[in-house]
Design a binder for these strands. Structure first.
Lengths: 188, 188
DNA sequence: ACCTGAACACCGTTCAAGT
DNA sequence: ACCTGAACACCGTTCAAGT
């Protein structure tokens, strides 16, 4: 197995573990066992747990950015765009009741090493910026302050929906909450 | 210092620590040091970390229940009741950027010992039930299914607002998001 | 270049021993 | 009844040693 493969295996398995259990609960020994190396080898590729987590968060934001950019380019209507957007967070729950990497690490926010916190924060900034662009596109004379606040509220509400649905272990709870947001006018 | 005092000290300090760092990050040794005993003494009062966390969650739900019951009895209007309700979650942020005990432990939900998870779940059930009663009171012929879904959405949205505001380390973010919920019709 | 065994100070937990 | 020191198997991390 080449270096790149091992490194990629570590990132892939670690990402899945963090989305299930968070940063604190991530164990280098368990991770190493799942990958098939010794924990000291993980340290060879990522000197500290902070280095690994920061790399995970950075990659996660990059992937999200690419996906969202394409979604905006496809130039669908607002309703279809919201549906595609909320489906991303639904997909995490479908994957063994996992969470968005941001959602689970946001709860640990004050414990995260600074390098990790910085990368995690970039994900929420990206999402709010993207939602702002999506909302602004629909309006002739957009009030950017009000739109940015709405974008912030939408992101917060969706993360909250994921948190609650995960706690209940029931993806229908997520769907119901999103539907209620739509009916109340938050997602519109 | 009597037994009760030590036990209460442990619970009080632990609650504060969990609201800041979550279940996984809670250390019996750190907790013991803050209380002024040895970690083995903490185990005398709470045999395992799960026992302590379950007791914390139970107490937290009891306290919330008493407060919410009084709020409902005071029979204020919907707007005032929502204001008082959202202020509870704001207060946690005011206290050194802490979180609602449910919010931070919900992120760790799948890692929690079962006895803890059961107590944590009771908190969300209590809140959704309370919000359902609040909403139903205002309507002559309430559609209970729709109202319960709205209650679920409100709780999720508020927890999400707290999560995001905490990440930003800015309580104004919480206020703005709540205001946006109100403007969109979710909190009404 | 990549991996590992052994050591370090931490952790929750247990238990015999103290008062 | 309440507390503690010492031990256990864990943890992230380091580092000299292997290929």
């Amino acid at each position: 197995m080449s270096t790149t493969d091992t490194r990629e295996s570590i990132m892939s398995v670690a990402r899945s573990m963090v989305q299930a259990h968070g940063y604190n609960a991530l164990s280098f020994r368990e991770l190493a066992k799942a990958v098939g190396v010794k924990s000291a080898s993980v340290h060879y590729h990522f000197p500290t747990k902070a280095d690994l987590a920061a790399a995970l968060a950075q990659r996660y934001t990059e992937d999200a950015s690419a996906f969202l950019e394409e979604l905006l380019d496809s130039d669908q209507g607002l309703a279809a765009s919201f549906a595609a957007y909320t489906a991303i967070f639904r997909a995490a729950l479908e994957s063994d009741n996992r969470m968005c990497l941001w959602g689970i690490m946001a709860a640990e926010h004050d414990d995260l090493p600074e390098t990790v916190r910085i990368e995690v924060d970039k994900f929420s900034l990206l999402n709010v910026r993207w939602l702002t662009r999506l909302l602004a596109r629909e309006i002739k004379k957009p009030n950017l302050v009000a739109i940015k606040q709405k974008a912030l509220a939408i992101f917060a509400a969706i993360e909250g929906a994921q948190l609650l649905a995960r706690g209940r272990g029931d993806i229908k709870v997520y769907d119901q909450i999103i539907a209620t947001y739509r009916a109340s006018g938050l997602l519109a």
